[in-house]
Design a binder for these strands. Sequence first.
DNA 1: GCTCCTAACTTTACGGTGACAAGATAAAGC
DNA 2: GCTTTATCTTGTCACCGTAAAGTTAGGAGC
Lengths: 211, 211
Amino acid sequence: MTAESTTGKRRYHHGDLKAALLEAAEAVLAEKGLEGFTLRECARRAGVSHAAPKHHFRDVGHLLTVLATLAFQRLNAAMGHRKSMIESQDARAVLQAIGEGYIAFAADNPHLFNLMFNCALLDNQDPELTAESEAAFKELARSVAAVRDVDDAMTDEAGRLDVVLMWSVVHGFSQLFIFGQFEIGRGEDESREAWLQRLSRQLMARLLALY
Amino acid sequence: MTAESTTGKRRYHHGDLKAALLEAAEAVLAEKGLEGFTLRECARRAGVSHAAPKHHFRDVGHLLTVLATLAFQRLNAAMGHRKSMIESQDARAVLQAIGEGYIAFAADNPHLFNLMFNCALLDNQDPELTAESEAAFKELARSVAAVRDVDDAMTDEAGRLDVVLMWSVVHGFSQLFIFGQFEIGRGEDESREAWLQRLSRQLMARLLALY
DNA sequence: GCTCCTAACTTTACGGTGACAAGATAAAGC
DNA sequence: GCTTTATCTTGTCACCGTAAAGTTAGGAGC
């Protein structure tokens, strides 16, 4: 792909700079966080000059918007994967899987999660971004509808409320977990991963007691 | 206090620059958001040179940490106020009031809420900040304990889970509401405030059905 | 009153940032 | 081969946070 990897010499034309910049951006985001994110650092890692990104992205907000769109795709994939992993496709089990998938994605990609839901630089009018974001929402709403045994959860007031509740729980938990607010109740002999898995499972189960 | 307000002339010594900077900081945060926040803009609004803040705050992170500490105090006050407003001190009514207070604060001060829970520049080791943050958490845990009719909600596993659930709901809802993710289900004839009030009330009521 | 000390603030400077304009280069089309 | 065009570089600008050094004013001791 990039000639550099084979010849070791830098070409004037990168080859696939757009993808390379997005990859670099995610790495920078993971290392430095949103406040430490800089476009120039991305360019540096991709091995190009500081002005090179301009040709592929309008500005830093545009790059982040595209990255967030990809992140939403991965969130959707994560939820879908969890859903496909369970044997019984019982509505309650599906909802549980969707919720755990949401939380697992957030815990695995805290920097991306933060980007998706807490970045003022994002262009929320961007059609591709909103499409992916709505897809995530609809996946969740569909699961709630199934548990309520209706076609569309958003048609009646009670259904809408349950979707809001469900989303709030998984989102709030993810956020607070990432921020480290729950560390108090963690046993010392338990790994962070195991603890998260247990907690998210219990949380969803408790919530399902409403039905 | 500041001589400027009475004489109209700028003094070399401000008088109460620390407070003035914090006030300016909140205004800047409200206008420009966290990504548009600059220390120099704060200094400008306080009518001092760009290096003046250095004497009162180590760096930009320190200023934001102090501001976040004040914000947590206000969150605690908001919850306490809601709690004091209800006539019956029934445990369920109290929990409902606490939750609604949390959400109301977030909706009224989205910029501060974002600062408190989504800013990597904050010094989470700061004792004053952690003290206020823990106070908020304890207020919530206490309300959950009362509903469960126990002294301390954090002693048993089920109690801890309910605290986590409760916090996740109010926090996640606040976050998503601020981000505008719930605009879909809003009637056009309803004001944003009335809608929020109704929604948060219903949300807490639905959650209380667990008990 | 005076002097001295020190905290509060200003000025100046440095490296880094995003955005923009203009120039250089290579790849692709004819 | 020649031209066109997209891609990338260099150079510049205003602005940022931080630091060092200089300036001012308020207060303590006399």
